[in-house]
Write a protein that binds this DNA or RNA. Sequence first.
DNA 1: CCAATAAACGGACTTCACCCCGCTTAGTAT
DNA 2: ATACTAAGCGGGGTGAAGTCCGTTTATTGG
Lengths: 195, 195
Amino acid sequence: MGTPRAERADAARNRQLLLATAREMVAEQGVENVTMDALADRAALGKGTVFRRFGTRAGIFHALLDDDERAFQERALSGPPPLGPGAGPVERLVAYGQARIGFLLEHYDIARAALDGSQPAPAGEGTISRVHIRMLLGQASLGAADLDMLAVQLTAALEGPFLLYLSASDPADAARHTGRMAQSWQDLVQRICRT
Amino acid sequence: MGTPRAERADAARNRQLLLATAREMVAEQGVENVTMDALADRAALGKGTVFRRFGTRAGIFHALLDDDERAFQERALSGPPPLGPGAGPVERLVAYGQARIGFLLEHYDIARAALDGSQPAPAGEGTISRVHIRMLLGQASLGAADLDMLAVQLTAALEGPFLLYLSASDPADAARHTGRMAQSWQDLVQRICRT
DNA sequence: CCAATAAACGGACTTCACCCCGCTTAGTAT
DNA sequence: ATACTAAGCGGGGTGAAGTCCGTTTATTGG
């Protein structure tokens, strides 16, 4: 009763199939050519199925990105310092931001496609970055600031330049600014966290 | 030769008509019911005309928002302190953020509709906020940081919580967090700008 | 193994953003 | 005035997202 019944086996299989197929299509033809019809056709499934599984076009890319983020999260949570535990919280914050910038650059188009002006929170409430940053802020001993909101602001400051401000042009353009973004992130974090 | 020839009179008239009509429709039926067809019909113009004028659906809302922002910008540039000139730069930064939060809340749905996963930078390079924040940062005497990038980060930290993180649910939900956002913005700015 | 049932499936259908291109008209030069 | 031309206009056409509902199938309890 509490459990809303697990996903049926065929459904799970199809989800995997669709994800794999989508990844192929992205690699071969670029994000913009992954249409719901084409994806359904290539996976030899009905269009209805695709929508049932992912709800929306953006949903597919969101799922794809989630996959990729799992490995990244692993490194941040239990990898070697300064990204993983073992370094001080501020040092880890800096390292996290720099790693995240690299990650976003690497997955630029999928991340962009996962965005969508519609209902579900684009990089929503439960983002990896927000949670991780919140955790590290808790370890740095700042004054009695509103750490939850600060985490949201910092996440925006970190990812915004990509998702909001540099999204106009192509990845190459974003790549050109990567160095400055990383440096500036370090400055920002250190300014905020100095006692 | 340098001037690409001014907009024709009838074109300008139609632009105004469309803007006014769009505003009516937003007021009466909400943003999501403003379709290009409906707008064209109601303004008694062809659909092609609408696209010629605004390029894209988001373009309409962008234009609408620009209008509203003009008044806001006026206050920030030459209104009474602490928002306008006369107060110190840090004080003005704080005031700007708080005013901007109010503005965004007030224009929530249009701002959201002006966004769009496509080419033109959503809140792009030339945003009012970015430019204004950049200016004030220049007046605060910070160390030799990368002020341009810092301005981008701060803009994201200010507007991101709306456009990126709270966009999931309805305005009422965002309104509930407004106070915390304003307070947190103040903290953030003061942390960054303290010598 | 069999019946029952809730989930999954497929694909036609609807709705909309955006494109295209032949026709019309405002501005301008003679 | 008149003729010329570039800008503007209209609205049918296209492609893709998302919905609906009748049909099929995995799962579970007997």
